[in-house]
Amino acid sequence: MSTLSSSSGKSFWQRYVHASHFRSAAEEFDAVKLGFWLFLTTEVLLFGGIFCAYFIFRTLYPDAWREGSHLLDWRLGGLNTAVLLISSYTMAMSIYCVQKGYFTRAKWNLFITLLCGAAFIFIKIAYEYIPKWSVGKRPGALFDYPFAEHAQLPLWWSVYYCGTSIHAAHVLIGMVLIARVLYRTHKGYYGPTHYTMVEVTGLYWHLVDLIWIFLFPLLYLIH
């Protein structure tokens, strides 16, 4: 492996040597990906609890769920869906660019991904959480919305806030990971022969998108 020779003029990724307990860099890459996919299964099942609560209570209280769904603005949800989908695309593009060695483009793509994440959080908090919370559309015992038509509406808000806040926490974690990858791309850590962390961060970000792809219709559209 000629690229592994340690010459000081080369970037980190050109000098990268895989961990000694793997037989090759390809095997290490494969192992990391398998490990990360397993981690993603745990994430899906973590949200599985929220989906289960949604499924159970939606079936038990369809009218309250319909009312709750009508109290959400599909335009905001749809906008956030588009924002996340675009960020997923730029994330995938940044992997492509790193693979090809187009580092400036890679950094721009990562930066846009980061911006999209921030936009998602901003829309979520400024246009959804704060206005809703302040007029009393709150979970469980905190509920104080005067115009509820169904007694189980507080439970709908519980599921809404649990699901979306845990998802938003994942968006924030993803943004931290992306910021790290952006910094390290800038410093020359990743390149065509070594981009495992870029790929893995991308997987995480896509999962966040994936969860939202299901949360959006369940919360905003199904009635």
Binding site: T41, E43, L46, G48, G49, A53, Y61, P139, G140, L155
Partner: peptide, 30 residues
């Protein structure tokens, strides 16, 4: 790998239940 995340969300919801009384496990709240 497959089962542990579910206890994660369960205990998280339980913590929310104690702190905010969200009511998912509380019959008095539906």
């Amino acid at each position: 790998v497959l089962a542990t995340p579910v206890i994660g969300i369960t205990l998280l919801l339980l913590a929310f239940e104690r702190i905010f009384r969200i009511g998912i496990f509380d019959p008095a709240l539906g």
